[in-house]
């Protein structure tokens, strides 16, 4: 079954939306993402172009300026909501991880004692 687009965000999608909380030129996003992730996440130029087009079509970003070939974008309210939703999802996952690793379950404790 086809996965709904943007149902969950990939790392690259997430960081592009994160970068566009402020108005930025598309060409600056690649460098910014590499900088804030310390090169852990790299976005290829083709991927950047296609994802910006996808976000535009989905109404998650809007084009604010066109100066020749340089195009600037910023998040729309829909994009901000989606980014916030993703942040909450990641926080829940992190909380579940901390819960499972910091506090072994009651059954495990009983099993090791018996």
């Amino acid at each position: 079954m086809a996965r709904e687009k943007f149902q969950t965000l990939t790392e690259q999608m997430f960081y592009i939306l994160l970068a566009l909380q402020e108005e930025r030129c598309g060409a600056d996003i690649m460098a910014l993402v590499a900088q804030i992730t310390q090169n852990r996440v790299t976005i290829g130029p083709g991927t950047l172009y296609n994802l910006l087009e996808d976000f535009l079509s989905a109404g998650m970003i809007m084009q604010t300026k066109v100066e020749g070939r340089r195009r600037s974008y910023v998040l729309t309210q829909q994009g901000k909501d989606r980014l916030l939703m993703e942040k909450r999802r990641l926080e829940l996952m992190l909380a579940d991880y901390r819960h499972m690793t910091a506090e072994p379950s009651q059954e495990l404790r009983q099993g090791s004692a018996g």
Binding site: M30, G44, T47, N50
Partner: peptide
Amino acid sequence: PIPLQTDRSIQWRV
């Protein structure tokens, strides 16, 4: 070099 496409799903979609 950084590959042109770093997301395989997008590469196949295009």
